[in-house]
Nucleic acid binder design. Structure first.
Lengths: 142, 142
DNA sequence: CTTGACCTTAACCTTACTGGAAGGTTTAGT
DNA sequence: ACTAAACCTTCCAGTAAGGTTAAGGTCAAG
């Protein structure tokens, strides 16, 4: 298999495959003309890279997963732990994105959204960020 | 205000402030010794940048928000639309991350997680990804 | 007079690629 | 045999949003 076929087979771009090779994540044989050649074991590795990337693993994490794939004395517990750790990371991200989303919705709710220039959103975002839910008010004895 | 104070006041790093200036997102006056000087209007812009970044706006989107902040004939509807568009983007991301998370949990469920090398996760990830729930079948009339 | 805390610019590192330049190879068609 | 399309090769540059380090100027205190 040449790189273009390998790309179509795995859903990666040829560019990405060369990039992964430059990082030592996969190897390729070479034909006499210099073209890269991929066998079924290489295609397996590329599939792992493609799919692991799609579910959120970084290339360094993929490097570890590929090493496990090629290690016949691996423990499946190590693979599982890596996956569950990634789930925990995604959960953190989800919490963060949800907070951002809710903040934006609260801001949008307080904005008229008309032809006028007064805008609660801009007022809020451009003022000092206390991070507080309540506003400080001046004392009577100032 | 010097850049360090401005940084502490807004929660940005001095480095980021210089970077934003290099992109033309904010301006600064200069003292005789070359130090940057920030007035309250500049601090407002920096606050907008800091907080807009935190809720997910890109620097290019921030550029637009700053231009609205400085445009007295703006329409608050434009600000609101930008915010709601960002909410929609975050919603897309949330869907995507949630799918990734669920895929990973399904994979983890099918893995023993023991000392042995057999691992449903690696098997799944390294095999061809149809990504399909249904398989394409050839037409009778070709 | 020196130390420490500031400030300045410039240049490189990061992640995970994508695009393009400049050129070699193969294949199909005429 | 010639040519054009469709492959392939390497290398260089750029993206977002800064962080890090280097090398040096400025300023206040002790």
């Amino acid at each position: 298999m040449k790189i273009g076929e390998a790309a179509r087979a795995t859903g990666l771009s040829a560019k990405s495959i060369r990039y992964y090779e430059s990082l030592g994540l996969v190897q390729s044989l070479r034909r006499d003309n210099g073209y890269r050649e991929y066998d079924s074991a290489a295609i397996q590795e590329l599939n792992l890279l493609a799919r692991a990337r799609r579910v959120g693993f970084s290339l360094e994490e993929c490097r570890y997963l590929v090493s496990l794939l090629n290690n016949q004395s691996r423990h499946s517990a190590d693979v599982k732990q890596q996956v569950l750790q990634k789930v925990a990371q995604l959960d953190e991200q989800l919490v963060h994105l949800t907070q951002m989303r809710n903040t934006l919705l609260e801001l949008a709710d307080r904005c008229q959204g008309d032809e006028g220039p007064e805008c609660a959103i801009l007022q809020d975002l451009s003022s000092a960020n206390t991070g507080m839910r309540f506003t400080l008010v001046e004392d009577e004895n100032g």
